[in-house]
Simulated assay, not measured.
Amino acid sequence: MSDHQSARWRVTTLFSRRIGKFRADRRVVGALLLLGLLLAGRVWLAGHPQHNPWAPLNLRDPAGWATQSKLLKLRDDPVQCRAVLERSDVAFSTLDPAGEGACRREDRTRLSAFPLSPDTPAITCPAAVALHIWERDVLTPLAQETLDSGIAQIRHLGAYSCRRLYGRDEGPWSEHATANAIDIAGFELEDGRYISVLRDWQGNTPEAEFLRKAHQGACDGFSTVLGPDYNAAHADHLHLDMSPRWRGVCR
């Protein structure tokens, strides 16, 4: 056998011996790649807690992929919700429970420094968190972008009302019965203008654009958002609530 033939024989033999090991090699390489991706993902999530479903919610972080799911988890956990407000340095006060029966309000949380008018009503902590995020991440930049002004006050029609849906004598209770909702009627701007849901919702004006985008932006944090396009009962306000029964109702 020539040297050339001998070399070819050695290569062929080595290749034949490796054929049965290729599958195992691929598994090892695949496992190493997967491990590398997991480690890289863990490092990335540590630097971007707003996208990390396991990181504690902090309202000082920008909104991310995991923010809405974290908000929804707070709906039945006022203790954890208040811990989020404290962690996020959001000023609030806690009021004693009030009411009876279906209108019993165990969670009465009031944002201490929030531009609500004519007053700042006590609402549930999850609703307060969603309201804080909406004002900061949606309303404030949107008003500057579309109306060239900041927001001085957010006008509301109330939060607590011990009643069933649409004031009926029977049927499901409204989220207002436990102050887990708030109705927004309009916005007073820093330049003195007033944007009314009833007056300014229709048309192609900057005011209408602001209201529609404000409505849509609220859907990222609240469980239920209803506006004038939903029905006549909401012609003059945006209904925002944190109902544990629904998720992602945006009409």
Score class of each variant (00 low, 15 high):
residue 27 R to F: 06
residue 27 R to W: 12
residue 28 V to G: 00
residue 28 V to P: 00
residue 29 V to C: 04
residue 30 G to F: 09
residue 30 G to A: 15
residue 30 G to T: 08
residue 31 A to N: 15
residue 32 L to N: 05
residue 33 L to Y: 10
residue 34 L to E: 06
residue 34 L to K: 14
residue 38 L to A: 07
residue 40 A to H: 02
residue 41 G to A: 14
residue 42 R to W: 15
residue 43 V to N: 02
residue 44 W to Q: 03
residue 44 W to D: 01
residue 44 W to V: 13
residue 47 G to R: 09
residue 48 H to Q: 14
residue 49 P to S: 09
residue 51 H to D: 15
residue 51 H to E: 14
residue 51 H to P: 01
residue 52 N to E: 02
residue 52 N to Y: 03
residue 52 N to S: 02
residue 53 P to H: 08
residue 53 P to R: 10
residue 53 P to W: 07
residue 54 W to Y: 08
residue 54 W to I: 04
residue 54 W to L: 14
residue 55 A to P: 10
residue 57 L to E: 00
residue 57 L to S: 00
residue 59 L to C: 13
residue 60 R to H: 13
residue 60 R to Q: 11
residue 61 D to Q: 12
residue 65 W to R: 04
residue 65 W to S: 05
residue 67 T to N: 04
residue 67 T to H: 03
residue 67 T to V: 00
residue 67 T to L: 01
residue 68 Q to P: 06
residue 69 S to F: 07
residue 69 S to I: 02
residue 71 L to Y: 00
residue 71 L to V: 02
residue 72 L to F: 11
residue 72 L to E: 08
residue 73 K to V: 06
residue 73 K to S: 11
residue 74 L to K: 02
residue 75 R to Y: 07
residue 78 P to F: 06
residue 78 P to Q: 03
residue 78 P to R: 02
residue 80 Q to F: 07
residue 81 C to G: 15
residue 82 R to C: 05
residue 82 R to H: 15
residue 83 A to T: 08
residue 86 E to S: 14
residue 87 R to Y: 00
residue 88 S to W: 04
residue 89 D to P: 00
residue 90 V to H: 01
residue 94 T to M: 01
residue 95 L to W: 11
residue 96 D to V: 05
residue 96 D to F: 03
residue 96 D to M: 11
residue 96 D to Y: 06
residue 98 A to C: 11
residue 99 G to F: 05
residue 100 E to Y: 15
residue 101 G to W: 15
residue 102 A to P: 14
residue 102 A to S: 15
residue 104 R to T: 08
residue 106 E to K: 10
residue 106 E to Y: 08
residue 107 D to E: 05
residue 108 R to V: 12
residue 108 R to I: 12
residue 111 L to N: 09
residue 112 S to W: 07
residue 112 S to A: 13
residue 113 A to E: 12
residue 114 F to Y: 06
residue 114 F to K: 02
residue 114 F to W: 04
residue 118 P to L: 14
residue 118 P to V: 05
residue 120 T to W: 05
residue 120 T to D: 09
residue 123 I to F: 07
residue 123 I to S: 01
residue 123 I to K: 05
residue 125 C to M: 03
residue 126 P to W: 00
residue 126 P to L: 02
residue 127 A to I: 09
residue 127 A to Y: 06
residue 129 V to K: 08
residue 130 A to V: 00
residue 131 L to R: 04
residue 132 H to F: 05
residue 133 I to L: 15
residue 133 I to R: 13
residue 134 W to D: 03
residue 135 E to Q: 10
residue 135 E to A: 06
residue 135 E to V: 00
residue 137 D to F: 07
residue 138 V to D: 01
residue 140 T to P: 00
residue 140 T to H: 02
residue 141 P to S: 09
residue 142 L to V: 12
residue 143 A to E: 03
residue 144 Q to Y: 10
residue 145 E to W: 10
residue 145 E to Y: 12
residue 146 T to W: 08
residue 146 T to M: 13
residue 149 S to N: 09
residue 155 R to P: 02
residue 157 L to N: 09
residue 158 G to N: 04
